[in-house]
Amino acid sequence: MDQIVQTFIIGLSNGLIFALVALGYSLVYGIIELINFAHGDVFMLGSMIALLLISGVFGVTAATSPLMIVIIVAAVILITMAVTATINVTIERLAYRPLRNAPKLAPLISAIGMSFVLQNIALLIAGPANKSIDNVLPSVNLLSYIGVNTVELSFRQVFVAVVTVPLLIGMSWFVAKTKQGKAMRATAQDPDTAGLMGVDVNRTIAFTFLIGGALAGAAGVVQILYNNVTVWNLGFRFGLNAFTSAVLGGIGNLPGAVLGALVLGQINAFSDRYVAANWTNAIVFMVLIGVLVFKPTGLLGQQLADRA
């Protein structure tokens, strides 16, 4: 029982990080029907930037005072989000916007190319080895305060929730309530009509990439603080996990993406624990293939018109 609860907690933290990245896939797919292959690598760049900021620029070590750590982590999250958002918008401008009228597979191929470009830029700068940072967050078991010692809920797992949940709520508020969010939904439904109604379609799409990039950057920071390690090809596997989450929940559907990510986080954790870690990727891909083949609309259904 303890083991199951423990696995569930690990799965929940995995799932929350997946959710931030999955939203980026879902937003972009919802609006231009593009599987933004490079998105996982934007997330990886986010973790690299965070690593650089934490250990290089701010020089955080285990000895830094807790208050300073809180301030620095907040600053790192904001800076990283800004940088990855800029990167994502730049990618859209260079690699996808010129292909707006091309056959559908052309932007996908361009996105794959972009993914390799980003990976190799990281490889060029950071080198092929794993990059790690000092343990910034204290690794205390919060449950030991209430007398539970068999299950561990560490501070860093709470930290993951503290960062991701407000972002997820803010994101859904933004899409549902603001004018820009309305423009995004309109563009997703029918870009031509939205254009005729006065929505600047190109700007809206760029804005979608901005939000997606910012969320991926936040996920990158959370990832590096949670696992303490990143590597140049992290984005490929992680991105496919996040994409699978988006598909599982119903691509284009934002609550679906979060739900899918939480489910996939559990699948990952339980597979690691009860099957074998070296089968986890195969299991995730089987879930992906299974969902696409048997229920392509996902758990919560697709929220986009089928513009063939």
Partner: peptide, 20 residues
């Protein structure tokens, strides 16, 4: 030689843009 896919990725992006 270690960054061959930097060039190959660029090839994909550029080809899709200018000579698909």
């Amino acid at each position: 030689a270690q960054f061959n896919f930097l060039f190959f990725g660029l090839i994909l992006v550029v080809m899709m843009r200018f000579r698909p």
